[in-house]
Write a protein that binds this DNA or RNA. Structure first.
Lengths: 121, 121
DNA sequence: TGGGCATCTCAATAACTCTTGAAATATTGA
DNA sequence: TCAATATTTCAAGAGTTATTGAGATGCCCA
């Protein structure tokens, strides 16, 4: 269960343009991930030290995970942290008023296959 | 539909301890909101100028809304922006793999009443 | 209209963050 | 082992952000 400190670290990591783009790129890339070099090319060719700075910042915040594959290091999105962040932000949003947070659920579930037991609202 | 600039502004606003606490407090407070003074008391009695700085930062980022009521200014959470932020972060997360983002949906919908057409997963 | 309350604005300072470029580390293949 | 490739580490400088305290503004009621 995410705590305030972790959430602050995650939001801080996401508040920088390059890092937000990296996370979104990795979210769409899926579990296979991408190498640091390929991610760097996608960020209008940012320098390697700059990429390293941002990638380790994201890893520190728990938003991405890495593994070495030969000479490359492969990064992928940490979906558990992303889910936890959403849950932390909206925790106790209902308090007897479910209509308060259902727009957020709708926004999120609309991007997903509905065959998993989640209906559109 | 949220764009990158708005999302960066929102994440930046949420990356500061006092502001994150304010947003979460207002999320639980619901649509009626709370006055700046009452919010300040809840933030271990932060100074009025400090509260004003953070509240206007949050309003600038679209995360809270304000209205005057007599001498007080009442702030409430902007749930549309919060939902939009979640949607922006997870956009295109599925790409043929709905299991990728369904944990996030589950995390969020578990906080809500299920009688509105949203089922738990 | 005047006093008091609630909040905002402003300027100065301290602390933090990002970028850059040079150098170090790790891995692979000749 | 040597050279090439991929990535990380480090230090310096520029820019950004948070806090503080003093003062200004807006509103209400006697």
């Amino acid at each position: 269960m995410m705590n305030e400190k972790q959430a602050l670290s995650a939001f801080s990591a996401l508040s920088q343009e390059t890092r937000l783009r990296i996370v979104r790129l990795l979210v769409t890339a899926g579990p296979h991930g991408m190498s640091a070099g390929v991610i760097g090319d996608a960020m209008d060719g940012a320098s390697s030290s700059r990429m390293s700075f941002h990638l380790s910042h994201l890893e520190q915040a728990g938003l991405v995970e890495s593994r070495r594959e030969g000479r490359s290091i492969i990064y992928s999105a940490a979906l558990t942290t992303l889910s936890g962040l959403v849950e932390f932000l909206m925790r106790d949003c209902c308090q007897g008023h479910p209509e308060v947070c259902s727009p957020a659920v709708a926004a999120l579930s609309s991007c997903c296959d509905t065959s998993k037991g989640i209906s559109h609202v």
